[in-house]
Amino acid sequence: MTTLTIEAGAPRGAACLSPPGAIARIARREFRDAAASRWFLLYTIGFAVLAIGVSFMSLAGSGSHGLAGFGRTAAGMLNLVMLVVPLMALTAGAGAIAGERERGTLLYILAQPVSRTEVILGKYLGLGLALCCSVWLGFGLSAGVVAWRAGGADVDAFLLLVLFTCALALAMLSVGVLISVMSRRVGIATGLGLFVWIALVFLSDLGLMAGTLIFKLRVQEVFAIGVANPLQAFKMSVIVAMNASLDVLGPVGVYASRQFGGSLAWILSGVLGAWIVTPLAAAIVLFSRRAPA
């Protein structure tokens, strides 16, 4: 029997949505749920408050002298972003599938005329957009503080900072979703997410620091290992965007700037891109093989 005759015989309205249509609808739903949830509100407010605080602190003392305070604000924000955004994205991602699995709602949504890939992509996009909104809000408010207190700023660098922050959020969300797909319970998923957060934010860098000190790693080794960490790739991307050179980062940065020159920005973006695509792809593959409940 061919599909055509089936669909001709089916009652009206019973044909299913195109994949983009289904993804868009699930994403929208996910966005709404995220935006209305308490954790999200808390994170957004927290991020905004911290961002404004950093802008204030970074600008203190420059007074009316008209130093474009942004370079400094960005540097302060870099630290803030590297702490808060991965935490936000990892925990949001970790809850995405595991939460629904635990509440039994996953089965129900999968019983609808949608495919698993559509469900996971829809949830990913919805959460991703919610995270991006949170980031935009935080940065937007802090840009307001910069405009009010300091005046000038490097607009291009600021926009790139926002862009890379969104990329970082999406990458960490991707890892979070992968964790979520692997976990049976939200508690486990969140725990794993926190562990990955600590590992990426602190442990891997501290380990590499120790390695650098003990084994006297060469610059290319430090760079090669360091750049694999999405947080370092993010940090370097922002510094390249603001400074056009990594010399701020000492010999390793000088090496990277010299060795890769103009393609450095692309390499760093590529690393971030890989961190977005790979875990998400793995999550999709894994999700299609796992029982929903």
């Binding site: 408010l141 307001g144 405009a147 926002v162």
Partner: peptide
């Protein structure tokens, strides 16, 4: 300082607005 101020203010409004 005045040069970038409008631009950054615009960005501030744009980001908050888009969100």
């Amino acid at each position: 300082p005045s040069e970038g101020r409008l631009a950054i203010l615009a960005i501030s409004l744009a980001l908050v607005g888009v969100a």
